[in-house]
Each structure stands twice: as structure tokens, then as C-alpha cells.
Nucleic acid binder design. Sequence first.
DNA 1: TTGATTTCTTGCCATTTGGCAAGCATCCTG
DNA 2: CAGGATGCTTGCCAAATGGCAAGAAATCAA
Lengths: 193, 193
Amino acid sequence: MAKEVLIAFIQSNIPVSGSALTNIIDQFAERLIKKNEFFLKEGTVSNDYFFLETGCMRAFTHDPDGNEVTTYFYAKNKYVFEVSSLFMRTVSTENIQALTDCAGYSITFETLNKLFHASPEFREFGRMMLVKAFAAFKQRTLELINKSAEERYENLMTTDRDVFQYAQLKHIASYLGITDTSLSRIRRESTKK
Amino acid sequence: MAKEVLIAFIQSNIPVSGSALTNIIDQFAERLIKKNEFFLKEGTVSNDYFFLETGCMRAFTHDPDGNEVTTYFYAKNKYVFEVSSLFMRTVSTENIQALTDCAGYSITFETLNKLFHASPEFREFGRMMLVKAFAAFKQRTLELINKSAEERYENLMTTDRDVFQYAQLKHIASYLGITDTSLSRIRRESTKK
DNA sequence: TTGATTTCTTGCCATTTGGCAAGCATCCTG
DNA sequence: CAGGATGCTTGCCAAATGGCAAGAAATCAA
């Protein structure tokens, strides 16, 4: 079984090897998600944690007026999960959809919990996932406050070029907290340079 | 020992009682934090988790231009911790400071971890803390994107009236992602009603 | 290939927010 | 109580962003 990338990912987060590691990765199942397919649909309870090896995905919800708001982009070699719904077992207000054909490894909530209780190493891994996702989110929030839309756009361009390539501009716009009109103008300005 | 509020707080998050509960709360130490005192200073590594029974606190960092940005307000009966620094053992970029005299219960990182390994119930509690803090943060980020500054202000007014009472307006402004000038204008408008 | 659909850009103008500086107000300290 | 610091408000104008509608470009399906 070719799970090298998953193994590398886990080991980049926590020190673990040998049978402890084997135990962990055996619980992950290969999974393909076709372009436009939903990994999570609002109104349902999320039941999977997913390591995305190739492809990219987008999370979005709807604001009170019914407009789509992109809440996150997931690039390859990243973990994909909706914290509240997965861990609090609540009905999700978010969707997570594949922007391209995706491949990776998934594990169910139940198996995740079994592993948490059985393996201190994996427990540490689980906590790291939460903590890192949280830290990334804080970073993003801070940017919303103290960077201009243009700076946020340029940041995204450089750090997430691949995601950027597959997402529609209106999705990127709502992720940046602006309208597609404004994004279009920002792009015009920044290509001038 | 009068830790009823702490007990109630833990029980509102996970089902636990008897000796398992006693084990947990015995690890928390009473702690007072005077007005303006720092619970966490940027440049240091956070080492405590704190349950805030009375009083309120503010988290803030500095943007690239050196301006203070308020990242969070903590009301009474809430937990206070800085995720990245506490759990990744990294140097904090954030400060957490008491807005009023505060009282509550704290537990060190080391003790926290011992408890995590020893008690499945507490493990669950720890996860809940992370998950709920994360969910709250996502909510806040979403508001920054799809609500106007005025709506965000009115929201804060109604949901966090007590915090609001002790924080300076410029702190509230940066929390809302606007300048103190704009906040002042928004307040003028909304008191007209 | 062609027509239909969707996405993206643009022009025009409105609204929101910001920057600065001055003026009040409040609070603290001696 | 006086003086000084700090925090809050306001006026003026600039900059950023939004809303709408039309048109251009890209995409998709027959």
C-alpha cells in the first residue's frame, strides 16, 4: 500500500514510527473525490477527516442573504475537516466541495476516536491538527483586519497559487471579504505592474 | 474548596462526576490577576490555561506598523488561552491582559498533559475547549466578511455588554476591524435611534 | 462549430471607511 | 484644585469598496 505521503505528513507533525505508525495509517482508507463532488454538505453531520494528497477543495457557507461565502481553500498535502460538525456532531452550515479531482486518505470520526484512545501518539497528532488549523484561521482573521484587500489578494496569489488556479474569481473574492467587482479591479491594477 | 463554578463549567462541556471529576479539579489552582496585569506577554511561551470566573480580559497583538490590534475579549465564565503558544510551545505574538481585576483557576501545560493522558474524560474536555474556541473564531471571521462594521458593533454590544463596559473604544474598534474614528461615528448614529 | 450559459470586466456613481488635526471630556496625580 | 495625560468626538476631505447593469470573454454542450 502506497501511503508514503500520508506517512510523511504524520511524521512531519509528530515523532512516531514502527508499529505505532503502522497502526495509525492502517486506519486510513484511500478515497477519491471527483471534481465538484461534495466532501461535506450543509445540513448533514460531518463524519470524516480527510488528508488531501492531490487536488484542491473549497469550503463555503451562505450568508443571511443567501450569498455564497468561501470560508477556506484546501491545497494538496493538507488535512480537510470541518471542526464544529465533526467534533461536536452538529449539523454543518458549511459545504466542502472538490475544485478538481481529488485523491487522499480518509478516516471516520469513530475510528479517529478509537485511535485517540488507543494511541498517545495519534492523540498528539489529532491535537496538532486542531491547533494548526486554529492558528491558520487566526492568521487569516488578522489579515482581514490589518491588510488591505489588495495585500490579501497578493498574499493568496503567492502562497496558494495552485488553489487559485482552479477557483472562480467570485469564490476568491468572497474568501477575501470583497465583491467580485472589486477583485476584478484589484487584479487590473496589480497586472499593470 | 469552593470550585463550584469551575465544576459547573466542566460539566457543561462533558459528562463527568465523582472521583474522575475530583481528580480534574484538584489540578486547578486558584489565581487572581490584577487589573492591567498580563496573563501572557508577547515574546514569551504561554504556559497556562485559565478559567476566568470573574472579570474580563483582552488579547492583542501588533500589526506590521506597530499598531495594537485587539484579537479577542474574554468574558467571565470563559476559558482563556492562546492556542499556538500553549500547545505548540512557540513564542507568543499575542498579549493577554486583564481589563479588570480577575479571579479564576489555572492549570499549567504540563499538568494539563498529564491529565490528558490519565483521564479520557478530561481529554474530551480539552478537545471541546479547542473545538469551541475554534468555532467561535470562525464565527467572528465570517462576521468580518459579511456584516457591516455597524452590525458587528451592535452584535458585540448585545452579546458582550459586560466586556464592552470595561474596554476602551479604540480596543473595541480594532477588534471590529475599524478605526476608533469610524467607531465613534457609528456610535453616534446608533445612539440617535 | 455554434449557440447558450456562465464568468469576468468595466463604467458610473453611492456608500463606507480612513486619515488627520483640532477640540472636548475625563481621569489621574500631585 | 491645577495641570497634564489620555481617550473620545467631530469636521473635512480622500481612498477603498460596493451596487448595478451592460458588454466582453470564456466555457460548455449539442
